[in-house]
Write a protein that binds this DNA or RNA. Structure first.
Length: 295
DNA sequence: GAGCAGGGTTACGCCTCCTT
DNA sequence: AAGGAGGCGTAACCCTGCTC
C-alpha cells in the first residue's frame, strides 16, 4: 500500500452557511475550530502527505504536523481535520500565522480530526458519519495533546451558548446518517458562525480603474479596513453622495497598500452596517461583509 | 422549438498577511 | 514592491425543466 493507492476526494466536504442550528435526533454538533482545513494521507509506515482544501501538498508548510503523524501506526488512511493554532484556551487564526505561512515551527499548532475517508484499503466515504466517526475514534483512542478527534455533542444550542461565552468561531451541525460528499453538494453539514455586527462609517471609496471596488471604513475614528460586495445600485448611490460631499482623508496614517490606491474621500460620514468574524490583532475587520446602509 | 425561471457551477474580484 | 495563498461574495454562465 502506497500513498497514491489512497484516493483523494475531488474537493473536501464543506459545511454550508446556515443562520440557524438544525435540531433533531439525526443531528450532532461540533465546535468549529478556526484554522486551516487539511487532509492527511498516511501509508501506515511513516509516510505522510498533507493537503489543503484545494488539494495542494502542504508538507513543507506544516513540518510540526508531519512530525505528529509520522510515528503513528494506525494503518494506511486518509484523515480530515483542521490545523489550528491553539494556546490551550481558544483557536487563534491570527497568531498562528496560518495564512500564507511557508515554513514555521510552532508547538502551539495542533491537528484536530473530524473525519476518516479511507482506511486499510477501503473507501469509507459511502458509510454514514456515525460509522466513519466511530472508526476514526477507534484509531485515536489515546488522544494526544496536539492530535485528537473533535468531540461530538448532541445539544447544539448549549454548544452555541458555550461558543458565544468563550469567543469561539462557531458550531458545525452534521447529520449522523450522511455520507461524505464532495464540496457543498449535500444537505448534511451546516455551519453557524459567530459574528460581530457594527455600524461603521464609510469615509472613502476605493476605485479600481475608475470604478468603485470597495469602501474604506472607520469606526470610533479609527481605520478598520475595507468592505467589498457592492452591487450596482450601491455604487451609484455612493458615487452620487461622494460628488455632493467631497472631503479629505480623515486618518493621520495610512497603510502602505492604501497610499497608492485611488480613494475618493468623503466629506461627510456615510453610515453602513457591517458584519465580520472579529477584529484582527491589528484592529482590522476579519472577513467583513456589507449588510446595508444607514443605522 | 423558443423563452423563461431556478439551481448549480465556475470565474473573478476583493481583502489581508505572508514570502520573495 | 510584487506576488501568492486562503477565504468569501458576487457575477456570469450553463444546464435543466417548465410553459406557451
Amino acid at each position: 500500500m502506497t500513498l497514491s493507492d489512497i484516493p483523494l476526494p475531488k474537493v473536501p466536504m464543506s459545511p454550508i452557511v446556515l443562520p440557524i442550528i438544525p435540531e433533531g435526533p439525526e443531528w450532532v454538533y461540533q465546535l468549529k475550530w478556526d484554522g486551516v482545513r487539511t487532509l492527511a494521507r498516511l501509508d501506515g509506515k511513516g509516510s505522510v502527505e498533507l493537503f489543503s482544501k484545494r488539494l495542494e501538498l502542504k508538507n513543507e508548510v506544516f513540518p510540526e504536523i508531519i512530525s505528529l503523524l509520522e510515528p503513528l501506526r494506525i494503518g494506511p488512511c486518509l484523515l480530515d481535520g483542521e490545523i489550528v493554532y491553539f494556546d490551550g484556551n481558544r483557536p487563534n487564526f491570527q497568531r498562528g500565522k496560518l495564512m500564507g505561512r511557508s515554513r514555521y515551527n510552532n508547538e502551539n499548532l495542533i491537528y484536530v480530526l473530524f473525519d476518516l475517508l479511507h482506511a486499510d484499503g477501503t473507501d469509507l466515504r459511502g458509510l454514514t458519519l456515525r460509522e466513519r466517526f466511530e472508526r476514526l475514534s477507534a484509531k485515536f483512542s489515546e488522544p494526544q495533546k496536539r492530535l485528537f478527534v473533535s468531540e461530538l455533542y448532541t445539544d447544539g444550542h448549549a454548544l452555541w451558548d458555550w461558543v458565544n461565552e468563550k469567543g469561539w468561531e462557531g458550531v458545525v451541525s452534521k447529520r449522523l446518517d450522511s455520507p461524505y460528499s464532495a464540496g457543498k453538494h449535500h444537505e448534511d453539514w451546516f455551519k453557524k458562525r459567530k459574528e460581530i455586527r457594527l455600524v461603521a462609517n464609510v469615509v472613502g471609496l476605493k476605485r479600481n480603474n475608475g470604478v468603485i471596488a470597495s469602501l474604506v471604513l472607520s469606526y470610533e475614528g479609527r481605520y478598520i479596513g475595507h468592505v467589498s460586495g457592492l452591487d450596482q445600485a450601491s455604487k451609484s448611490l455612493l458615487t452620487q453622495f461622494a460628488e455632493q460631499h467631497p472631503g479629505d482623508c480623515p486618518f493621520e496614517k495610512l497603510t502602505p497598500g492604501m497610499l497608492k490606491s485611488d480613494v475618493l474621500w468623503l466629506g461627510a460620514p456615510f453610515p453602513c452596517r457591517v458584519a465580520a468574524l472579529e477584529f484582527t490583532d491589528g484592529g482590522i475587520l476579519r472577513q467583513p461583509r456589507l449588510l446595508g446602509f444607514g443605522h
